[in-house]
Simulated scan of single mutants.
Amino acid sequence: MSVAERSADEKAKEHGGIGETIKVIIQALLIALVFRTFLYHPFNIPSGSMMPTLLIGDYLFVSKFSYGYSRYSFPIDLSFIHGRILGSKPERGDIAVFRLPRDPETDYIKRVIGLPGDKIQMKNGVLFINGEPVKRERIDDYLGETPFGEQVRIRQYRETLPSGVSYVTLDMTETGEKDNTEVYEVPPDHYFMMGDNRDNSTDSRFLQFVGYVPAENLVGRAEIIFFSVDEGAPVWAIWKWPETLRLNRFFELL
């Protein structure tokens, strides 16, 4: 084979290798797009409203298919879609991501407490559903830190819904703003959402800010914590790993 032929052959292999690489990248991007659009939505926790269940710095996978699809299920707003398709209804106790009714560009994450037709009320910090108090058991205090690094103890309660779903809530003060409320009657095709950090959660109890969440605003159900980093630690600062990683929270089911 002449030098010219070898050169042409090498160029052909080089171009073929580049083309194959581009093809693999495009395929990977398409798979990621399908995964993100139809299956699982990655979500990170920006606030402490769901403590102690979810912490700032947790990264979750939220299943979109659990509740089916609506106009808010996709990266762009498909306003021609009305209601939900191919899905089932949320269950009481689910942790759900939804679009804020007054600002559909904003994602919130809370626990589903009230189903359509339910009557929800807080009395002295105790949750009532349809006139019945939810079982509430005092457990050991939650140990947290102030922004100044001082340790603080917060009352914790294990709450068990009538369905049997059990989780832990925080009670920072006995005189919280929404420890005593009116009776909220959940409208048809809407849900009542609450944070587990009861005195530090803007949720459906605040009708002017969140209120009742329409079914079509649901994005999906939180399924698993796949990654977790200390609050305030940049996730991209890999040189600080593993000190900043909360390895005990990796792959925790919700």
Rank of each mutant, 00 (worst) to 15 (best):
Tyr212Pro: 03
Ala233Thr: 13
Ala215Phe: 03
Ala222Gln: 06
Phe206His: 13
Val219Cys: 01
Val210Leu: 06
Ser228Glu: 11
Phe209Ile: 09
Val235Ala: 13
Asn200Ala: 12
Gln208His: 13
Val229Phe: 04
Pro234Leu: 08
Leu207Cys: 00
Gln208Leu: 10
Ala215Gly: 08
Phe227His: 12
Phe226Asp: 11
Leu218Met: 13
Gly220Glu: 11
Asn200Ser: 14
Ala215Val: 01
Asn200Asp: 15
Thr202Ala: 08
Ala233Lys: 13
Glu223Val: 15
Ser228Asp: 10
Ser228Cys: 09
Phe209Pro: 03
Ala215Cys: 00
Phe227Asn: 13
Glu223Ser: 05
Phe227Thr: 12
Val210Asn: 07
Asp199Gly: 01
Leu218Asp: 04
Ala222Gly: 11
Ser228Gln: 06
Glu231Pro: 02
Ala222Arg: 04
Thr202Glu: 07
Gly211Phe: 01
Gly232Ile: 09
Glu223Gln: 14
Pro234Trp: 10
Asp199Lys: 04
Ala222Ser: 13
Gly232Ala: 04
Arg198Ser: 08
Phe209Ser: 14
Ser204Phe: 06
Val219Met: 04
Leu207Thr: 15
Ile225Thr: 15
Val235Pro: 07
Ala215Gln: 12
Ile225Arg: 10
Asn217Ala: 02
Asp230Trp: 00
Gly232Val: 12
Glu231Asn: 12
Val210Cys: 00
Thr202His: 02
Asn217Pro: 00
Ile225Met: 10
Phe226Asn: 09
Tyr212Val: 09
Tyr212Ser: 12
Val210His: 01
Asp203Asn: 01
Gly211Asn: 03
Val229Asn: 07
Asp199Cys: 05
Val229Lys: 02
Arg205Leu: 03
Pro214Ala: 05
Glu231Gly: 00
Val219Lys: 09
Ile224His: 05
Gly232Lys: 07
